[in-house]
């Protein structure tokens, strides 16, 4: 095994079936990218053209960012694929920690003290 580690391969071991699957996957990723572009456009238009009323704009664009986070993590970074149980555990733990961190910092330094 050791000597095989730095050897290139003549061909891929993928079967015809796997090839069809990976090509479909690639199309799905491209569609996910189109969605991301659309979501980004929507967020910029909402703020830039003032089409969403002021108080609703912040939750609206944060929601869009959440959708985009989901698309990046689960599609581009393959978290939805099988054999990704531990990566899911790690990243979800990270995201769970993010919320109290941000809220605590905002409350601690942001209310009156600057």
């Amino acid at each position: 095994m050791g000597e095989n580690l730095s050897q290139p391969f003549e061909k891929s071991a993928m079967t015809q079936e796997e090839m069809v699957k990976i090509n479909r996957e690639q199309r799905i990723q491209t569609i996910a990218f189109a969605f991301m572009i659309a979501i980004t456009l929507l967020a910029f238009i909402a703020v830039g053209a003032d089409v969403v009323p002021g108080a609703f704009a912040t939750p609206f664009i944060l929601g869009l960012a959440g959708v985009q986070l989901f698309l990046q993590l689960f599609y581009f970074m393959h978290l939805k694929d099988k054999d990704h149980g531990w990566p899911n555990t790690f990243i979800v733990s990270g995201i769970v920690l993010v919320i109290p961190t941000i809220v605590a910092l905002m409350l601690l330094i942001g209310v009156t003290k600057y």
């Binding site: 790690f90 990243i91 733990s93 990270g94 995201i95 920690l97 993010v98 961190t101 941000i102 809220v103 605590a104 910092l105 905002m106 409350l107 601690l108 330094i109 942001g110 600057y114």
Partner: peptide, 19 residues
């Protein structure tokens, strides 16, 4: 590592939002 990075960026976001 990415989970740790997420938390680190959270502290910077929290600081920015506070200030």
């Amino acid at each position: 590592f990415l989970a740790g990075e997420t938390t680190m960026f959270a502290t910077f976001f929290g600081t920015y939002l506070g200030l």
